[in-house]
Amino acid sequence: MSSAGRATASLRHRLAERGIDSTLFLLVPGLVVAVALFVYPFSYGIGLTIQPTAAMREQWGGGALANYVAFFRDPFVFDSVWLTMRLALPAALFNVLASVPVAMVLRHRFRGKRLLTSLLVLPITLGTVLTAQGLLIFAGRQGWINRVLLELGMIDEPLKLVNNYLGVMLSLIITGFPFAFLLISSYLSGIDPSLEQAAKTLGAGWWQRFRRIVLPLLAPGLATTFVLTFVLAFSVFPSARLVGDAMGETRVMSLMAFRAFGEQNDYAMASTIALMMGAVELVVVVAVLGLRSLLYRGTTGGKG
């Protein structure tokens, strides 16, 4: 048998070698849904963006690309990129950075741990609209915070905590933090606790242990968590409208897309803004994941 190069096994075995077997049928439901609900509508949306309305062609030129010209040339539209970024980046950064110490503490066993964890995660169940409602009642002009501070004489007039940038930021933190916290907790539990014990016996103090052992092993997880919370925050819509300043400092991209769609009946421009929204997110995601690929990403020894 001089079959060094040629496999002599049956076709079935050779196909299996390349990952082709009957389990591939498991992909069918997912593929059908993906094509029907994503690929087709997405392609259709892209098609829409190059069919600008006559008014847009007239105003911005550029022929079929008039919507894109409008997006980049119209400061009212284009500024929304910066306005959204200004909310999403700090919110995602805060959610990730604030989760780390909390998740570190909650690794240990102590009385009331479960209660505390539940409280931290509870906002996930609320949804953005309920959160916005709560913020308005709690932090609005006539809200509890302002009433208490006024009664105590600590302020002379109500603090402006909602219907502005701060209100949206608070809402993004309330809804985004639990996600970040849960993700980072699970990444942390994947790090073998004996690594820190080993670092202890080698003379490392808590900061050195965190800086030299935990952080490098956690960093890829932090990057992933940042990406997810960033995408979540970047597509902010209900809270930007409900607790924000919808036509001013929280005029985010999703609001602009909604405005083009709902108020101007310009589906083509709405699609263009939505597409550009995705493009901006993609740039940030690719940049962060690019940085992540430079980090150590092997095993962290724990239970995963």
Binding site: L195, Q197, A198, K200, T201, L202, G203, I213, Y296
Partner: peptide, 20 residues
């Protein structure tokens, strides 16, 4: 004393080598 001040060397069952 905390472990980092005792100056004992320890070899763990799982080795606990820093993987990175």
């Amino acid at each position: 004393l905390p472990p980092e001040r005792r100056g004992f060397g320890m070899v763990f069952q799982s080795y606990a080598l820093f993987p990175h």
